[in-house]
């Protein structure tokens, strides 16, 4: 059986570019691939080109150059849209229709079989059955977001594209939305989630692409992007401790900085390393696991001047 890496990606872009004028390039030569079954986090500061990219993947915006395939077909084609559910930016519905009627409109447009049954199931999935008869304009922001996800789920899509789904939600709403994303992203379904919130991406995504000024700066799993783990050691005498640590097998680097030692090794070896230092007559006052946060990686790649 083919692994996810071996199967063709569900979303693939090759040099995708969107230029609005000679001065404004929203997306610049973007190469991106989203594999089947993963929850892919598309991370970037505001204005980095995330939404423009997602709109191009849905056929709402035409690229200036480059190409993309979504579900093996051109973006926006019926073959592609057939199996893709999406919420781009804020959810948009008809304010004078009820939540149920809005979903009925979507279900009929996407031609699902037995639309009434599908609508009720989607409402149940997002916990809106009790308010389904209320007009959309009376919904809170959280309910609107959940209705957006329900609409995206109507097709039972293989690929779900969600653009900043927790934008504007209070902490409770954000937690509920994350749970919902985890729930709908289970099994074979692939989720492409754009966000500028590190914690959200860390909690939800299996792989991450970081975009800045329209270009992909890094791509990999959260662990890969955070890099190798290490240990932080405060010991006396410092130089002697560093010498002992360098002699231990499996320690990749030892660096003295600000009166402490930073070493790259598996953080689970903390007790073994402590014992070796103690056996060498070195007194250890502090020893803890150390790893770069995704936020540090993000700031490093996108520049600290960017608004996050």
């Amino acid at each position: 059986m083919e692994s996810a890496e071996e199967r063709p990606p569900l979303v693939e872009t090759r040099g995708l570019t969107k230029r609005y004028s000679s001065r404004i390039t929203a997306v610049d030569d973007l190469y991106l691939s989203v594999r089947r079954g993963e929850v892919y986090g598309f991370l970037g500061p505001n204005g980095a080109g995330k939404t423009t990219t997602l709109r191009m993947l849905l056929g709402l915006i035409r690229p200036t150059s480059g190409s993309a395939t979504v579900m093996g077909a051109p973006p926006g084609s019926p073959q592609s849209l057939d199996r893709v559910g999406s919420v781009v930016e804020s959810p948009a519905f008809y304010p004078y229709l009820s939540g149920r009627d809005n979903l009925d409109v979507v279900a009929r447009l996407c031609g699902v079989e037995n639309p009434k049954k599908r609508v009720e199931k989607a409402l149940e999935q997002v916990g809106l059955s009790g308010r389904a008869s209320d007009k959309y304009k009376k919904y809170s922001l959280g309910m609107k977001q959940r209705l957006g996800v329900a609409a995206a789920l109507l097709k039972d899509p293989e690929l779900l594209i969600l653009d900043e789904p927790t934008n504007g939600l209070d902490p409770k709403g954000m937690a509920e939305m994350r749970d919902l994303i985890k729930q709908v992203g289970q099994g074979e379904r692939t989720v492409l989630l754009s966000s500028h919130l590190m914690s959200e991406v860390e909690q939800v995504c299996s792989r991450v692409g970081i975009i800045r000024k329209g270009r992909l700066r890094a791509e990999g799993s959260v662990a890969e992007l955070r890099g190798k783990g290490g240990l932080y050691v405060k010991a006396e005498p410092l130089e002697e401790a560093a010498r002992v640590l360098r002699s231990i097998e499996g320690v990749e680097s030892v660096e003295i900085k600000d009166g402490a030692i930073h070493l790259i090794t598996n953080p689970e070896r903390a007790s073994e390393i402590s014992a070796k230092l103690f056996a060498s007559g070195i007194s250890v006052s502090e020893l803890k696991a150390e790893q770069r946060s995704l936020e540090e990686v993000f700031l490093e790649l996108t520049g600290e001047e960017e608004e996050v």
Binding site: G59, L81, V88, F93, P95
Partner: peptide, 18 residues
Amino acid sequence: SWQTFKLALTQRPGRLPF
């Protein structure tokens, strides 16, 4: 103004049939 074109056009029909 409601931005509902993006809702309709990301379903199946395509722009001209819609």
